[in-house]
Amino acid sequence: MTMIHKNEGLRAWLLSDDFTSTRQARAHKAYVSWLRFSTNPLAFGGLLVVLILILFAALAPIMATHDPLAQDFSQALQAPSFSHWFGTDELGRDVYSRLVYGARTTLYIAILVTVIVGPIGFVVGAAAGYLGGWVDMILMRVTDIFLAFPSLVLALAFSAALGAGIENAVIAIALTIWPPVARLVRAETLTFRKSDFVVAAELQGASTARILFRYIVPLCAPSVIIRLTLNMASIILTAAGLGFLGLGAQPPQPEWGAMAAQGRQYLLDAWWLTAVPGLAILVVSLAFNLLGDGLRDILDPKHA
């Protein structure tokens, strides 16, 4: 009884508009956002799938039923069954277990690219937008050049030059994905740079770095987070495309795009080799898209 009462008290405290502290105001905003988010079933489903993906990647040794690299030629190209849930590949490896370990590869690429791209986008975009003039012109011309290429083609060229492999794929994808982020940050920065609070900070003698990181970057954060979440989907698709063309993770490391590509040779005899990894890519990138859309609805109402 007291427990429920306590919960009610917490709810009331969270929902109250009558803030007594900054902490309460922040908690209130987060809680209300969460309530709005949880009423959106599609976004919620997206979040759920992403959490499951993270769970599978983190607990891969427990989740997998077989060793993803163990070959057993007597078991090659087996159809899905009770012992091999998604069948086996041409080397007799368990497709389900490879799929589980492949989640690690996918998540590794997506997170690493995002971690590289976010700061670059922030620095380039905020500097171009806030400083303006020559800096803006040069930085934007550079992004234009990168944007002139379709992203996969540019990533292909970079991976070809750097050599196949997962780290090089990460660099190649990051190189193609930062320009739209920089563009977005620049556009957001332009809307704030003449604001009174920025001018006030300038008059108080704040340094450029302080203004950028203390005032401008936090305001750009919501739209950039949305953008980065939606980017996750395209990173995963590009990574899968590179893997499909043999430029991503190298065998025997399990990667969904490469698995689908490998399966194409046995398409007529073993459809599951291609169908299952492709479906996994589809589900995960759909989940990131839904999550991004949901985040946009709560964090950035003006674009909803």
């Binding site: 989907a233 899968a240 398409l267 890519i281 759909l286």
Partner: peptide, 22 residues
């Protein structure tokens, strides 16, 4: 629209070949 954004096109193409050709 969402499916179009999220589907790996090389996979979709392979599935189309599997179903409509094979």
């Amino acid at each position: 629209g969402l499916l179009g954004h999220s589907t790996p096109i090389f996979w979709l193409g392979t599935m189309v070949i599997l179903i409509f050709y094979a």
